[in-house]
Write a protein that binds this DNA or RNA. Sequence first.
DNA 1: ACTGGATCCTGACTGC
DNA 2: TGCAGTCAGGATCCAG
Length: 272
Amino acid sequence: MPELPEVETTRRGIAPWLEGRRLLGARVRQPRLRWPVPADLDARVRGRRVRQVRRRAKYLLLDLGNDDWLLLHLGMSGSLRVLPKDSPPGPHDHLDLLLEERRLLRLRDPRRFGAVLWWHGLPQAHPRLRRLGPEPLSATFSGAHLYGLSRARRTPVKAFIMDQRVVVGIGNIYANEALFAAGIHPGRAAGHIALPRYRRLVAAIRETLEAAIAQGGTTLRDFEQADGRPGYFAQTLRVYGRAGRPCPRCGTPIRRRELGGRSAWWCPRCQR
DNA sequence: ACTGGATCCTGACTGC
DNA sequence: TGCAGTCAGGATCCAG
């Protein structure tokens, strides 16, 4: 999926078209996503003004006022684009939100792991958001936080930092890249990493995510920014998807192995 | 509580 | 050209 940098890039791209504007309606072509899209979405959103487009973890939150929220998740293959009102939909264009100024916000999601959820109340009280860990770019995320949560955990550190209850926003690309930047082997038991190394890891996570946001995220195949451009961080990837190719730091061939059901890539010399 | 595995879905790619 | 197998940016649920 879109990980934090791709979701944040999307938020920044769509916000100017939504904030302070009204929604004129919704067209749902395929309601069967991760969870069913509300059947009455069109009636619910029509005429509602979007106060703000926020992001929590990998969720986009449209603040419609009166404690009503529309939550969007892009799953593995989702993207959102702002298009002219009469653009013909493709086979995986499941939802349009009709905007002012003859525009629409279109959700495309070939694998349909994404979600469109309605919520009334505080967003942090939503069942899907309630148990989320800290934002990695916030001050509450620290080496001490990772260290404290990881004691006695035997799970590989890569799976540990991809657990959204530990810290949000990190998926398979940025977990691999941040661990390379920190010099930590992805298979190392989370509970066997000392505090100074977790401090390094936190710095590496922040630097990696911020650099990726600056490049508009990573496009492997599906991801598009709101204006249709790809993200350009793919050319900056140092280990992800690079099995057998030389480590950019020492030249040793990058290795790949399945870890916790996901592919891990690392340099056997630089990462311990 | 923690861990690993299966699961949802479609498309791209590889090898025969 | 076709077909089978593998893999893919996520997150939940279940069994042990």
